[in-house]
């Protein structure tokens, strides 16, 4: 464990709290892409299958995995029941079939090993790298976003972005660490996808302005 990885995981936790807080206080999930949320649940379920097979790694690891799966499922539960009337499917129209299909193809072509567990792990890594697209697409369609929603997107993106210095750190100082090419490539791609958003977030939201596309 190093500071970047810890901050990354913390950022992920914060993003979850922001999203749930936004929905609970405004009693609405407007501006939040249901499709992205479904993709994230798929990501965590497929990645953390090892909760049931692998020997115990650490309390931290197990706890975080359970929190990510549970909070993701809870978000979807809220969006599909209590706050369903506030969700507008007409602007949440990204075709996620392509993201699911593309991730599956990548996972099948370059798995770390030819086992179900390793293919599903790779699938989840690729899918995570693009899972934000329906959300970003929705922001683009409406041309603006609530500030709280942009905080959520930022914190979620910062999670993977912070993993990049973590990998550099592990590569340099952690002799036992085995860098995982798929995670690094997908992590870089994911951060690149966010870069436009990061830029607008930094130049507008951080200066107290509304998130609005030029």
């Amino acid at each position: 464990m190093n500071i970047f990885r810890m901050l990354g995981d913390l950022s992920h936790l914060i993003s979850i709290f922001i999203l749930l807080h936004k929905m609970q206080t405004s009693k609405s999930c407007s501006g939040v892409s249901f499709k992205s949320q479904v993709l994230y649940l798929v990501v965590y379920v497929f990645r953390y299958l090892d909760l049931f097979t692998n020997p115990f790694m650490s309390y931290y690891n197990t706890l975080m995995k359970i929190v990510f799966i549970a909070s993701s499922a809870y978000t979807i539960y809220l969006m599909s029941t209590v706050f369903k009337p506030t969700h507008d499917p007409a602007i949440d129209t990204f075709k996620i079939e392509y993201l699911l299909g593309g991730s599956l193809v990548m996972a099948l072509l370059f798995p770390p090993k030819w086992t179900f567990m390793e293919i599903s792990w790779a699938f989840s890594i690729w899918l995570e790298s693009v899972a934000i697209l329906p959300q970003l697409f929705m922001v683009q369609r409406t041309g603006e976003a609530e500030t709280i929603t942009t905080h959520y997107i930022f914190a979620l993106g910062a999670y993977r972005a912070l993993y990049i210095p973590n990998w550099i750190w592990r590569y340099m100082f952690d002799k036992k660490a085995k860098l995982e090419t798929i995670a690094v490539v997908a992590g870089l791609a994911q951060t690149l996808l966010y870069s436009d958003f990061f830029y607008i977030y930094w130049t507008k939201v951080m200066k107290g302005k509304k998130f609005q596309l030029p």
Binding site: R5, N54, P55, M57, M64, K65, F68, N166, E180
Partner: peptide
């Protein structure tokens, strides 16, 4: 040694 379980990140 955790060779068989390489995915130690989240």
């Amino acid at each position: 040694e955790k060779k068989e379980h390489p995915h130690d990140e989240l």
